[in-house]
Amino acid sequence: MTALIKKDQTTAEAARAAAVRYVMPDVNIYESKDGYTIEADMPGVNKEGLEVTLENNEITVTGHPVSEGVAGEVLFRQRHGLSYRRVFELDPAVDTNRITAKMHQGVLFLNLPKSEAVKPRKIVVSE
C-alpha cells in the first residue's frame, strides 16, 4: 500500500509536466478485507465525462466536467473548470476484472475488490 501512495505523487508530477492542465481531486481511500474503496470529489463530472483506464498495474481516473454555457457575464469566478486526473498504483491483490466505478453527485466511487485467492479464509479442519 505504501507503493500506492508513493506512485500517486510521482504520477502527479508527470501530469504537471504534460501541457494539459489537470486538477488532482481530493480522495479518500479505504481498505477492508474485501477490497479497496476510493472516493474522489469531482464536482460537475457525470457518468459521460468519466474515464477510468487500467494499464499494467495503474488505474487512471480522468473526469471532464460537463460544459455549462451559462448566459451572461461573469461577475465572480472561483471555479477552475479544468478536468480532474489522478493515478493510483494497484495492490496486486486487486482483482482487476471486477473493478466497478459509480458517479454520484460529483463524487466518484471506485470499488476495487481483492481476488478470492488472497482473501483470508477459514479452513475447516477435518477429522
Binding site: 500500500m1 500506492l4 501512495i5 481530493d26 479518500n28 481511500i29 479505504y30 481498505e31 477492508s32 478485507k33
Partner: peptide, 9 residues
Amino acid sequence: DAEVYRSER
C-alpha cells in the same frame, strides 16, 4: 473494519 489510507475530502 476498514483501514483509512487517505482522508482528504
